[in-house]
């Protein structure tokens, strides 16, 4: 197993190299450039060239890439053109916010989606099954930002139950040893802040988790239906086990196998969804950061952000594959 993990991590190297080349070429293919973004449309040719020279953008593209790659190996992602801060520093500021949001969203999707799909399968073609089908289709086809706006309107504006933006009430001060606010609140032992963080997290997590929730519910349902007609479930019944044991031990454990894979695949989508959700809820995460970078042609930030996203997706999928091996003894990674 360890060897397998090491191999997968080693495979990450060519993936990241390939990806960095693609991203490098891609961001430069966008019309405009950082100079225009900094100086505005009416900048003179000379000042644009001066900035390009300063940023090294006057060099041939492969020279630029080699220089970039050389810095990357030393852990230097370059600096943001706008803020002048190193990309790594900004990333460390912002990625805990996105990871916290993504984790909460997946947690919501799994905790609600798996039971929903399971019950729907057990009541195959019953009212609940059909209701969950309709709800899932709505969930899948509803745009994330629109759902976010509606929730904001209802729960923040109309009812005033939940805060509408940010990660923490601005009047509240909380130390940030990790930048994962939930963890910070626990470490500091500030429970009022913890509750406040949860309240801030609730709507963005639900908005972001709705599509994965619907997909997980559908997959769980389909997988459970398959498992229900398996011979080993009949065997379990013939043994005289209680329904609860049959459901949990014999059915659910098997029907979760495909669900785990889907969770891995959803992470990629979740990160794209995060850009929309973070924008609507003014969530100071990687999503909003990248959106700004796109608008400002902030090449270093875009490159760093996308490579980081890719890294995250690969790592999550590795975690999924490893946990899959624990769930499914027939798989043994060599």
């Amino acid at each position: 197993m360890l060897r397998y993990v090491a191999k997968r991590l080693l495979l990450l190297v060519p993936v990241l190299i390939g990806l960095s080349i693609l991203v490098f070429a891609y961001v430069r293919a966008l019309p405009g450039g950082p100079a225009i973004a900094l100086l505005g449309e009416r900048a003179t040719q000379e000042s644009v060239e001066a900035i390009n020279r300063e940023l090294g953008l006057d060099q041939p593209i492969f020279v630029q890439y080699l220089r970039y790659a050389g810095n990357l190996i030393q852990g230097d992602f370059g600096s943001s053109v706008l803020s002048r801060r190193p990309v790594v520093e900004e990333l460390l500021d912002r990625f805990p916010a996105t990871v916290e949001l993504g984790f909460a969203a997946i947690l919501f999707a799994v905790l609600a989606g798996v039971p929903l799909g399971f019950i729907a399968a057990k009541r195959y073609q019953g009212v609940l099954d059909n209701a969950s089908l309709v709800a899932s289709l709505i969930g899948i086809s509803f745009p994330v930002f629109f759902l976010a706006l509606i929730m904001k309107y209802i729960f923040a504006v109309r009812l005033g139950w939940l805060p509408s933006i940010g990660r923490l009430d601005i009047t509240r001060s909380l130390e940030h040893p990790t930048n994962f606010y939930l963890l910070d609140a626990v470490i500091v032992g500030d429970w009022a802040a913890f509750v406040d963080v949860v309240k801030h997290l609730l709507m963005p997590a639900i908005a972001l988790g709705t599509i994965p929730l619907a997909i997980i519910a559908r997959i769980t349902r389909a997988a459970t239906l398959d498992v229900l007609s398996e011979d080993y479930v009949r065997t379990a019944r013939a043994k005289g086990l209680t329904t609860a044991v049959i459901d949990r031990r014999h059915i659910l454990k098997n029907s979760l196998l495909p669900v785990v894979t889907v969770i891995g695949l959803q992470t990629g989508l979740l990160l794209t969804g995060a850009i929309l959700t973070e924008t609507v809820f003014a969530w100071p995460g990687v999503g909003t950061w990248m959106l700004n970078a796109i608008n400002n042609r902030d090449y270093a930030v875009l490159q760093g952000g996308i490579v980081f996203f890719a890294f995250l997706v690969v790592v999550v999928n590795l975690l999924v594959d490893v946990s899959y091996a624990f769930l499914n003894p027939r798989i043994r990674y060599q």
């Binding site: 398996e230 009949r234 065997t235 031990r249 454990k253 098997n254 196998l257």
Partner: peptide, 14 residues
């Protein structure tokens, strides 16, 4: 009861 197909009548994950 003993079932027909021992390939499918045992739970693969237990």
């Amino acid at each position: 009861m003993v079932f027909q197909d021992p390939m499918t009548s045992l739970n693969p994950v237990l």
